[in-house]
Structure formats: C-alpha cells, structure tokens
C-alpha cells in the first residue's frame, strides 16, 4: 500500500510552549512522514511561531520527518507583504504557498501549492506546474469526481497531489478578525484573544445548532472533516498524500489511526470506530467528497 501521511499546519493560536510540546510528541511518537509548519492565518501571531521555528524544525527532522514551511494565506498590509517576500527567499526548506503574491516572488522556483490556492482544474494545475509547482493540496470542497480528474492530471505532470482527510474544513477567510469582533475589539487591538480558543471559537445558530468555528480571520466547519473510509478510492485515483490537520485532540492517536488505514492495516469502518473511541469534540463530515452539503456524513458504504 502506498500513500504519504502528512500533518498540516496548526491553524489556531496555540501558545509557544504548547506548540513546542506538540511537535516534540509528533517527532517522537507520530508516524506522519511530512509536517507543514508555519503561521497561515494571522501575521500578528507570527513572532510566536518564529522564535522557536529552528528548534522545532530540528526536532522534527531528527525524528525523521520531512518539514515543509507554509506561508500566510492573507497578504494585504506592508508587514504581510514583507513577510511573504522573505518567506519566498527561504531555500533551506521546501515551502508551501497559500497566497498568489507568493507566486510573484517565487517566479518559477520549486514550491508546493496550499489548499487555499484555488487549484480547481487541470489547466490551472498544469499552468502552475509549468511555473514551478511540484505538489498541490486540493481545495477542501472538491467532490470525488474532480479529485479523481485532478489526481490523474497531477500524475501525468509528475506533481504530488494531497487531500485533507481529517480536521475542521476551512470554509472562508476574511480581512476582518471575527475573534476580535466577538470581543468588541478591532484587529489592531485584538490582544490575541484568539488564544482562548485553541480549537476555534464556536458559532451556534439561534436555534442552537452547532455550526461553525471562528479562528481569527478564518471561518471553519464545526464538524471534523473525515475521509477515512474514502482513502482506498483516493489512492486508486492517484492521490499521493493524505493530510491530517492538528486539532485539540490526541493527534498522535489520530495520526496512528490514519497511518494504519493508509498501510491497509484497518478498513474504513474500523478506522471510524477507532476515531469514535477518541471522543472527538465534534461530529465527522464528508459531504463535500460526496458532492453534497459539506456538513453531512455518509457511512462507509454510501455510494
């Protein structure tokens, strides 16, 4: 069985100690092959991340992990523009771009494309591959038919293709910080209130339905997207990499469960049963894959 298990970047504002401890455990105990590191959501949080970055990279590499650095997803103000310019000058690690401004700086040099890059079709993938893209993580909303066609196109071009298989789905980004707004602050005066919500700030509808979570400028699903049962089909299509996103759950356990699934040591139903034992704080969803409402969950035998 083939397929590479990856750990996506931490999207939330975890404090530096928590992050360092988290990655130490990943380095020592998790079977993931590749770890994406970096602050993707908010440029104000970046100093927390950068201070320990070299140490975390070293720790993960000693643990046998490949480390890829992920860029910011929103680039508007001068600080963010400078950060993106400097990011694209990194040559010590592979980098993943999440904003088009990075494509300007990278100018044909090798890079990966992150899931917020809107690679929806084979022509876009081909055009970007001709300009240096070696790997693409597909948008989270793509249904099975499109993932299949993209995987075939990627294989033809020798490009790696990655799909998120676990974690809350990123549904929108904005210029406005909804964490700051909830606390009647502005983004410039946020006092890092997002740190209070390490798994996102819940938004519940007025009829009490758990619906979304807010992570600064990002809005994510309340449900944890989970494509455990769909992994065989994806691999047959040519999907080469499977991405698990860090949540406030036992991520060593989650990555072990997915590693077993990818290696063929557990089937879809068994994998879902093992995930259920972890008492995750939200229901699972896989509607996007089935071309249905993203929040829905179809069982392993659903057509």
């Amino acid at each position: 069985m083939t397929g590479t298990l990856t750990l996506g970047p931490i999207l939330y504002h975890w404090d530096a100690d928590t992050k360092c401890d988290f990655y130490a455990r990943i380095a020592d105990e998790s079977p993931v092959d590749t770890v994406y590191l970096g602050e993707v959501i908010c440029s104000k949080r970046t100093p927390f991340c950068e201070r320990h970055l070299a140490r975390v990279i070293d720790r993960l590499e000693r643990g046998g992990k490949r480390v890829v650095l992920s860029s910011l997803s929103e680039v508007v103000i001068p600080r963010e523009r400078n950060m993106m310019r400097d990011f694209c000058a990194i040559d010590s690690q592979e980098i993943e771009l999440n904003n088009t401004s990075g494509l300007y700086h990278i100018d044909g040099r090798p890079h990966r494309l992150g899931p917020l890059m809107n690679v929806y079709n084979e022509r876009t993938l081909g055009g970007l591959a001709a300009r240096g893209a070696t790997h693409a993580t597909l948008p989270v909303e793509l249904p099975r038919r499109v993932v299949g066609a993209m995987a075939a196109a990627a294989r033809e071009r020798g490009v790696g293709v990655e799909v998120q298989v676990f974690g809350r789905a990123s549904l929108a980004v904005s210029a406005r910080c909804y964490h700051a707004r909830a606390h009647c602050r502005t983004k410039d005066n946020c006092q890092f209130v997002c740190e209070e919500d390490p798994d996102g700030m819940p938004l519940t509808t007025v009829t009490d339905q758990s619906f979304l979570v807010v992570n600064g400028i990002q809005t994510l699903s309340h449900s944890y997207l989970c494509l455990a049962a769909e992994i065989d089909e994806m691999r047959d299509m040519g999907v080469s990499h499977f991405r698990v996103l860090p949540q406030r759950a036992d991520m060593v356990a989650v990555t072990r469960i997915f590693a077993d699934r990818i290696a063929g040591r557990a089937d879809g139903a068994e994998t879902l049963a093992r995930l259920e034992e972890l008492n995750l704080p939200a229901p699972l969803s896989n509607g996007f894959w089935h071309g249905a409402e993203g929040h829905r969950h179809f069982g392993p035998r659903a057509a």
Binding site: E74, E141, A169, L171, A172, V173, L212, F288
Partner: peptide
C-alpha cells in the same frame, strides 16, 4: 465580507 473566491460556506450548507 469574506475574501471573494475563498468562501465555501454556501457549499457546506447547501451542496
């Protein structure tokens, strides 16, 4: 409000 072209809230709710 959301960055245009980077929003799949409608798809999450409606398919």
């Amino acid at each position: 409000l959301m960055v245009e072209g980077r929003c799949c809230l409608t798809n999450y709710v409606t398919g």
